[in-house]
Design a protein around this nucleic acid. Sequence first.
DNA 1: CTGTTAGCGCTTTCAG
DNA 2: CTGAAAGCGCTAACAG
Lengths: 335, 335
Amino acid sequence: MPSPVSIKDLATAAGVSHSTVSRAIRGAGRVSAATRARILTLAREMGYYPNEAARSLVMGRTKTIGVVVTTIGDPFVTQVVNGIEDAAHEAGYSVFLSSSRNQADREMAVVRVFRQRRVDAVIVTSSRVGSLYGDALAEFGVPIVLINSQHEGKYLYSIAVDDTQGAELAVEHLLQLGHRRIGYVGSATRPVSCTRRKAGYRQALARHGLALDPSLNVQPQAANDLSAGRLGLEMRLPSNPSAIFAYNDVIAIGALLEARKQGIAIPDQVSLMGFDDIEATEFVTPTLTTVRQPKADMGRAAVEMVLALLKGDEVSNRWLPGELVVRESTTACPW
Amino acid sequence: MPSPVSIKDLATAAGVSHSTVSRAIRGAGRVSAATRARILTLAREMGYYPNEAARSLVMGRTKTIGVVVTTIGDPFVTQVVNGIEDAAHEAGYSVFLSSSRNQADREMAVVRVFRQRRVDAVIVTSSRVGSLYGDALAEFGVPIVLINSQHEGKYLYSIAVDDTQGAELAVEHLLQLGHRRIGYVGSATRPVSCTRRKAGYRQALARHGLALDPSLNVQPQAANDLSAGRLGLEMRLPSNPSAIFAYNDVIAIGALLEARKQGIAIPDQVSLMGFDDIEATEFVTPTLTTVRQPKADMGRAAVEMVLALLKGDEVSNRWLPGELVVRESTTACPW
DNA sequence: CTGTTAGCGCTTTCAG
DNA sequence: CTGAAAGCGCTAACAG
């Protein structure tokens, strides 16, 4: 491995001082057009690439954003990261990706690594870990933006989907279809947003003069979303709903699979909808009606917010609206 | 933002020289147990985190791996990255994630950024871009490991699933079920591995004394895998197969959806299987029989290979075996 | 317009 | 066992 060419190598090759090379490369400061051109072609020929570590050291910034996810296996997280990476790239920032697996020790390790690497900012997606590492992040002293966080108001900066509005949209859709007995299958592992979605559910019902029937409402304890959905369906059946709104798509798909197993026709007997709009909604039969979260946009928005904070601008939290996506799993109430 | 505490701050606080602090922190070189302990507690109290940029600069390495993916939206890629991130974390490496979107200009940009950041190694997943940027990567001078690359033998180091063995496994399964007219729906956008899987398909047939019937074989041109699958099914129907083996799961799911639309019962009329074992195989009805790629393991293996190369060890390319996963979409030949 | 000098935070000889 | 000094590659005054 030939060690990379430095500003000094270029300087001797061009017969100038290294600071002139520095100016030429960055296009800052006054350099005669002639020497500038000479240096630039030389740089290309010799394969010069400025050492970002050195630059970071002297500039006191790394042009780097640390991104913490629970796991990129989550189809929701995946799209958010896509948006982050895209926007970061455009702004000349690189992304350190780390997954926490929702384990406190890994969260702590990630924070430590990010501190050592002096990332300019941190973006956290869908963390379900409480304030376990919140303080560690806070005292870090860099801007932190949370996306769909399950912590409540612990930080100043956050981007989230408008859970309440989204849920209202969903339930309103079901109400329009004539449904009156609408079940809600929540998520025990995401208490904050689950409560918000339930609020939207209640509000939509209320607007139609319906009260929330506790027997139609459940938050199954299960190993994962898919089985939570299966369980949720079973638990709701005795209450005889004509429609079910699930906390998210994977839970809805779990319910869908369980319904098929039990010989319940979706949507003819029971309408079903989810939340998120993950790719797999198109893979199931019937395809799943849902509320789309603008996932990539949320990622982009987080980066924009980070950049604003880095510039020293004032920013305020943003709640992005969900969008109804009607597919095949919902239909008019059969009763 | 209080600027982070440095080795020098610790030195003055502890009343020693900064080089003693350095030794104490790293546990290298001889330092008396007493001062060492004093420095360490001081470090904790004052919130010292070694500046990796500075360390990188002097050590000539960044403990950083650049990972290029086409898009993390791909469910296959997602799991691979999971494995990479995990193994990297364990080895004390951080991961720069960048997606290329299969666009040549983005690939080039990514390579440039990685060079500037002086990543110690590069891992590329599922690239379909030809040698467009191959040379750029090669002259970079750091170890490069390709995972399931569609370039042939362009690089020394690669990790891939054993396409031929995997396809054989798949087709053997169908043959065991009594199928004789087995269609193959390939992928036009992944010529190399598609050809390998086709080879496995042919070998399995040959072992049972069957020749490859060209009319049972197709590589649809479509905008994406899902529609390729739909198209593939249509194209194969005239040849009246009793079973179809698709290049991957998403293509198989496309075929599944099209079959349902056309009123063809899977698996009763036609057995169907895919390749990869993505999460969605469990979401469809019937659930999809497939060949599992050890995705996370491939990511881990890539990191191991990188570490070996960095140590200067000899390494050789690895082909990880696929594994048959029987689900509901395949059954005995009805004829 | 260009060169000199200092220094970012750290590791690493080389002397004590 | 510890300190002094040099240098990694770069930016940023400050003189010319």
